[in-house]
């Protein structure tokens, strides 16, 4: 049973990729579906990380909200970094801070680390279990808890519902 969910998710991803790449031609569609099916059956055992995604309605709603929160943060922090770049004094205050995450599932931790990296101003350099080492362009706080609050918390509360 634990192989079925990763297999289905893998199939949806592969088939969606085909649709975006090649368009919806009717004859090719059957071949694409068959190929996606074969690959997802063969590799479902290796894609067990996908099994930690929750699919009930609340998790899906949170995934949509998470996407928009991420977009908002992306725009906000890109404008912030661009402002720093354009000012002649180059007002940066960089350094590497340590933060802690509450997430348990490996896939959730990977997505959290990549989200932190994608928002300008913060960048994950190293991960050790529940600790991340993050290069921060403008350090405002001193200890681990307040930097966790500033960097991780806003994404974590959504990912917690989606992945657990």
């Amino acid at each position: 049973m634990h192989k079925v969910k990763p297999g289905i998710i893998l199939f949806v991803i592969l088939f969606g990729l085909w649709l975006l790449l090649a368009g919806a031609d009717r004859d090719e569609l059957i071949v694409a579906a068959a190929a996606s099916l074969v690959i997802s059956v063969l590799f479902a055992g290796r894609a067990s990380a996908l099994g930690s995604v929750r699919l009930h309605p609340k998790a899906i709603a949170y995934a949509v909200i998470f996407f928009f929160v991420f977009l908002k943060e992306l725009v906000h922090s890109t404008i912030d970094v661009a402002g720093r770049l354009l000012s002649p004094r180059l007002p940066i205050n960089p350094g590497i801070v340590k933060v802690r995450t509450r997430l348990k599932s490996p896939l959730g931790r990977i997505i959290l680390a990549n989200t932190i990296t994608l928002t300008p101003g913060t960048m994950t350099i190293e991960t050790k279990g529940e600790y991340y080492y993050i290069h921060w362009i403008d350090i405002r706080t001193e200890d681990i808890d307040s930097s966790t609050e500033a960097i991780v918390a806003k994404f974590e509360k959504y990912l917690e519902v989606i992945f657990g």
Binding site: V75, T78, V81, P94, T119, G121, I137
Partner: peptide, 25 residues
């Protein structure tokens, strides 16, 4: 602006902040 950051920033890590990430948006 990202390319400008690659030239202006003082070290590798800050260059990365500007160069590969301000360019995402």
């Amino acid at each position: 602006l990202g390319a400008l950051g690659v030239v202006r920033m003082p070290d590798v890590y800050n260059r990365m902040q500007a160069g590969t990430k301000a360019t995402t948006l």
